[in-house]
Design a protein around this nucleic acid. Structure first.
Lengths: 332, 332
DNA sequence: CTGTTAGCGCTTTCAC
DNA sequence: GTGAAAGCGCTAACAG
């Protein structure tokens, strides 16, 4: 069994409270004894019990993160970023995977509540509208990342991001630009699509429904969707994808069709999760996971402290130009 | 404040212990009252405090996972798998990122100990030899994934895996096969390299030091290493890479050099983390993260229960044939 | 079957 | 500057 403050107290010939104070660097303890106790604690290999402390002060310095367990690289990146941001603030991250069932997202939170996490962060939530209201009653602050239907959320400005991506393609001279959506985080997909439509509208270009096809955020669906697009009488010369995985699928489809990217087809992804690994390296819209994590944390801790409600925080996205986009070769 | 057993007890007109028993489905309580209390607890929205429970029984049903925070997709996959395996066993996962500094790996563990995790799992450890001994003294079971220098570890049989990968290339008729290593998990890289050498030796082929080049496990290093190999007077016709990221770099390099994979160059990766997204889809050695996680958990929980020391568990790897390997086109 | 009591390891008034 | 005492929410003997 690990040694406790009581043990230290005994050895130091003081009482437990003094040890507690000394270890907390309280000014209300003689500097001499403080030093002595701290040394002693160190020498004895004392490891304070965060859970006992948590019980006593009713805060655990612990953060819950809920994800569906699908291996979305962007989500993985977010988790790591959240942890990296939490650590210096003295917070530990407890993970809870929910699977793809939206119902389970709430039960995953319940698990975290048992651990008495101080707050909960949910990247790319799949939350049903019906559950949204519950979040407020849950007892601890809940902050969503990219879940704009909920008051407390931080997210990328996906509409602007979509516009930016498509404007880039328009600037290159493309006239038939497709969008492959994803249902992974439906709101997000719709926003990106809105940006797509706005960009086209901005140039007075028509929106061809045949050029909008839904995938599910995975490679395979991207491949399938792209195939469908290429089979069109007048196929697109460029495609904007819901995320990098979808774009990877599009790339693969082009490869199999013997098309060269970007010469014959331009593709742009989203997330910058996997984009730089691909051949060719993918032009993509980058969401800064580090900044998102930081904003989410600040909001969560702000809510904890009972601060003013900053409500929704929106971060800009950045278009990363790589090698998957170029001027179109030919119209149809 | 969340409601407690005491609250329930008051409402139910019984004592706290009865509530505790009822909620634990203890047989030592009247089925009638048990039911009643359980309903009551549910209706009151009772969320048991895992930390109080942990304090009392000295087990938290909590698992620590230490990773360096680099975004290795394989590690991310492992974390998710561990969590997925832990959940049904009633365990929660607490994450602790250590950065790339091996020293911090141990301090990350100290953090987890504060949370009184029941056991610690470390995927792809970077642990210095000097720290290894400390792990045993840490007070809770520590099991490493792919860290064979430590008694308690589970891992892929990387030597066999390397052999398998290279034998595949040999079977295709390749005679100049390179290995691009990684320092990410050095032991692992050396084992994979050993497998490479054994396979060559098995066919009576010489080992050309010029064909072995070290990377660092990242895409860029793979690209750089591949370039170096292609610049050889007599370049390899196939390359076996430390991991998929390295292989992605090799792919990229080939692309830039105008080489077609697999026609002009065969490449095989390792991990199956990112392999299926690539163009062309990568032939790779798959480590089953789910099985690794399961084995690690079993070992950890076994140690916790004071069971027999299963010591090192080795799992087989599987070669996944995709589209990045083919017979060589020409010798040099 | 249920209540009483003590205690897990720490913090925090309130006195001295 | 330090000690004594109570309590955080739960479990676990030990009685009855």
């Amino acid at each position: 069994m690990p040694i406790s403050m009581k043990d230290i107290a005994k050895v130091a010939g003081v009482t437990e409270s003094t040890v507690s104070r000394a270890l907390a660097d309280s000014p209300r303890v003689n500097p001499g004894t403080r030093k002595r106790i701290q040394r002693l604690a160190h020498d004895l290999g004392f490891v304070p019990s965060a859970i006992a402390r948590g019980l006593a002060i009713k805060r655990t310095s612990t953060l819950g993160v809920v994800i569906m367990d699908i291996g979305d690289p962007f989500v993985a990146k977010m988790v790591l970023s959240i942890d990296r941001q939490a650590q210096p603030r003295g917070y530990s991250v407890i993970l809870s995977t929910a699977g793809t069932d939206p119902e389970r997202e709430v039960s995953a939170m319940r698990l975290l509540l048992q651990q008495r996490v101080d707050a909960i962060i949910v990247p790319d939530p799949l939350i049903a509208d019906s559950s949204l209201s519950q979040l407020q009653q849950i007892g601890v602050p809940v902050v969503l990342i990219n879940g704009k239907r909920y008051p407390y959320s931080v997210g990328t400005d996906s509409v602007a991001a979509g516009r930016m991506a498509v404007n880039h393609l328009l600037d290159l001279g493309h006239e038939r630009i497709a969008y492959i959506g994803g249902n992974r985080s439906l709101d997000e997909s719709l926003e990106r699509q809105a940006g797509y439509e706005q960009a086209l509208a901005g140039r007075g270009m028509p929106i061809d429904p045949a050029l909008i096809v839904q995938g599910d955020g995975w490679v395979q669906s991207g491949e399938r969707a792209m195939k469908q697009l290429l089979d069109l009488a007048c196929p697109p010369t460029a495609v904007f994808c819901f995320n990098d995985l979808t774009a990877a699928g599009a790339l693969l489809c082009a490869y199999r069709a013997g098309l060269h990217v970007p010469r014959d087809l331009s593709v742009v992804g989203f997330d910058d999760s996997t984009a730089s690994y691909l051949v060719p390296p993918l032009t993509t819209v980058s969401q800064d996971s580090e900044k998102l994590a930081e904003a989410a944390l600040q909001m969560a801790l702000g809510l904890l402290a009972g601060g003013e409600l900053p409500s929704l925080t929106t971060l800009p996205a950045e278009l990363i130009l790589r090698e998957s986009t170029a001027p179109p070769r030919a119209g149809c």
